[in-house]
Design a protein around this nucleic acid. Structure first.
Lengths: 210, 210
DNA sequence: TTTTTTTTGTACCGTATCGCACATAAATAG
DNA sequence: CTATTTATGTGCGATACGGTACAAAAAAAA
């Protein structure tokens, strides 16, 4: 399998870097309030190049949301590996999420909360494509927490209870995202999250959850 | 004090009814995606009348948010009066909020979640006026819960703990709003809320909270 | 070189946007 | 009746919007 050199004029931009720049614009302003001119300015590209590479504004946004979900999942997964035991791992994940929501991550340096919660939620009521994307993102987050709990409690917790607790953890994170974007301090959110985890899962892994 | 009859041509519309109609448009589409033509169509007024009565689009939106916060607070307060004891009252409030978020209230008949969480959150990062309004709305919700807990536990719970639990309850409601707009069923949200309240406050009022 | 393929950038199209000017209408005050 | 005050509705104006046509540019292929 040889690396066939592409014909035609080469691109002057990196697709991933560009998507990250587009992401930041949508993250700050939301979908509806963002114009293609702003995206063009933020990326250094002109509109025809943007359309050729990513399609319409809506497609750009959906691509960005999907990319964000991927990066978010990887980020939180990594954070969950820095500790051991259900309770400590959950706390590590919460901390990582709060840092990200408050602009303390490589992804974003402003307190914009979660991209999906902060901007996609608005568009959901009037557009089925956005709505199913939103449901997908939330479902992924629930799944992530469920997988972690399942792994750490190996059969000790009924699947139904486990999924329920996972939903509850997602819920907490969504609420924290809202407060992060509203301007609440990182330490205040950290306290809230810690208390929430303490109430949801026991300190020692041997106890039954829920 | 006599009812001075106003001079000039009388208005053909009721200001409150009109604001409620404007509210529904913003509730579905959000601030940025809503045009004044859509508002004009929804209210039956033309743009000059709208501007004369409510000012710019931004002022309309802020007025609507304030009105929503008032109505929401009254709605939840009333719901809290239908039961007695901290735990039952909180559950009643949660149920009322979920019904409203899912379109089962006189305010709105569609599952649009909370107007502020669903639409104002997006605008917050780029506009200080919206941001302070959002902080104000969240603060009011925290206050409402704090007042209720304080009233029901009369001095048994330290003010700090009490406020902390109130924030946690608001957080839950914000997360539920997101899921309601995303399409989650009312019963599923009801289960989540009940479990959350069970974990946050004891069943019997005599126990210490948190 | 000539041809083919792909990207770039200018310039544009039709439409929608917010906000307002201005004339008209409907009420009261004198 | 005349003047004044307030609300209505048509219509416009300047701008911004999403999206695209088209020609120039930059690479590989023939």
């Amino acid at each position: 399998m040889k690396t066939e050199t592409k014909r035609g004029r080469p691109r002057k931009f990196d697709e991933d870097v560009t998507l990250d720049r587009i992401m930041l614009v949508f993250w700050r302003q939301g979908y509806a309030a963002t114009s293609l001119d702003q995206i063009a300015e933020a990326t250094g590209l002109n509109r025809p190049s943007l359309y050729a590479a990513f399609g319409s504004k809506k497609e750009m946004y959906l691509k960005v949301i999907g990319r964000f979900a991927d990066q978010m999942q990887a980020h939180l997964h990594d954070a969950g590996l820095t500790a051991s035991g259900l309770h400590p791992r959950l706390k590590a994940i919460m901390t990582a999420a709060i840092d990200l929501y408050c602009g303390k991550s490589s992804l974003c340096n402003a307190a914009y909360g979660c991209l999906a919660i902060s901007t996609l939620t608005t568009e959901v009521a009037d557009d089925p494509d956005f709505k199913s994307m939103m449901a997908h993102v939330v479902e992924r987050m629930d799944q992530g927490f469920a997988d972690l709990i399942r792994e750490e409690t190996k059969g000790l917790v009924p699947e139904a209870n486990l999924r329920f607790t996972a939903q509850h953890l997602s819920l907490i994170l969504h609420g924290i995202s809202v407060r992060a974007r509203t301007g609440e301090s990182r330490t205040a959110l950290q306290e809230l999250a810690e208390a929430a985890v303490d109430r949801l899962v026991p300190e020692t892994a041997s106890q039954t959850v829920v």
